[in-house]
Design a binder for these strands. Structure first.
Lengths: 185, 185
DNA sequence: CAATTGTGTGGACACTGTCCACTTTAGCGC
DNA sequence: GCGCTAAAGTGGACAGTGTCCACACAATTG
């Protein structure tokens, strides 16, 4: 039933429409209420899936770095790889990206649970410390400005900056990654 | 008629509902179509207003810095002031903030036109150069990573990080501003 | 076998954006 | 003043949406 995540893929959170999802499964609209309390619950499930997909791409990118852990170049490359994967996901899967960060209209409930992406970034930073590149005094809370920078760029590139030529966009992505690389050295 | 921007203020872009807006004005739904082609056109008008409000706060924040232009401390304080105003707007006017960056469902059309906030940041950075703090070699395109950092933090704080205690949130904001301040020195 | 539970169905309701033809109102030159 | 035009509002419809209700069927379990 979460196959209604194709809707999110192609049109973002607003496109995950209960009736359309049931139509795709070939069932009557109300059947959805046997699996999800709400349209919001359905969206939450799809969002968790989207977060998982993002985390998967990030993990993939990191694991492609051949240099071992605790080595300076490996740590540096892995940090760059998480960032690049994040930006690439936002660029190639805009619907899922938006959905992953869609905040529930009906708040409350437990936390949104997108810990996975953050944890990957934290791991990369910890590795930078244990590789001796990043002084442990500068480590605390460093994940947040970095996450903010990458996330903000991803958002702006598909928002106010969306009409920039593609060449310019990738240049800004590279600039951001370099910026971060410089900040942690 | 843009008084339907109260809807955006209290509930974000999805809350700017055509019929509700006309109801507030005390008129029949269809009357809206004499002023806006579309619900999307109405939303676009509201969004421009929201962008203007954000730019206004940023300009206010900058103008409150007493130190004159082209002076080192003035330039530094003004940069910090734009950033702080941005984050404050996102925190105190979440509905308008979300609306300001809502991308039109029905794309095309001319550019979204939120040049004003970017231009204020650019002015602050240019002032930093003319005050001799920021080397002109490092100036090009610097507005984008900075904007991304501030914007990203604003978004994350009302998204995945929304359940952090307020104290932590303001600490992250301060950390981000300090981070930027350090990057331009 | 009987009962309970999970899943799907059919019919409704209120709400939304949008289209159409029509009426009212304001402003204008004559 | 009169009549015209353009702007604004009205009323009635339609499809699409989320959601609720009572009911039907299947599988599972006692």
């Amino acid at each position: 039933m979460q196959a209604g995540l194709e809707l999110a893929r192609s049109g973002g959170p607003d496109a995950v429409v209960l009736r359309e999802a049931t139509r795709m499964v070939g069932v009557v609209p109300n059947a959805a209420y046997r699996h999800f309390e709400d349209r919001d619950a359905l969206l939450a499930a799809v969002r968790d899936e989207a977060v998982g997909a993002l985390a998967g791409r990030m993990a993939d990118g990191m694991s492609k770095v051949r240099a071992g852990p605790h080595t300076p170049t490996g740590a540096r490359l892995r940090l760059r790889a998480v960032g690049r994967a994040y930006l690439e996901f936002a660029r190639t899967e805009p619907g899922l990206f938006d959905t992953a960060f869609a905040l529930p209209d009906h708040p409350g409930g437990p936390d949104t649970g997108q810990a996975a992406p953050l944890e990957l970034l934290q791991a990369a930073l910890d590795d930078l410390v244990s590789a001796g590149i990043l002084g442990s005094a500068r480590r605390p809370n460093l994940e947040y400005p970095i996450w903010a920078g990458v996330h903000g760029l991803a958002v702006l590139l598909r928002g106010p900056l969306r009409s920039l030529p593609d060449r310019e966009k990738t240049r800004l992505e590279d600039q951001m990654l370099a910026f971060i690389g410089a900040a942690v050295s």
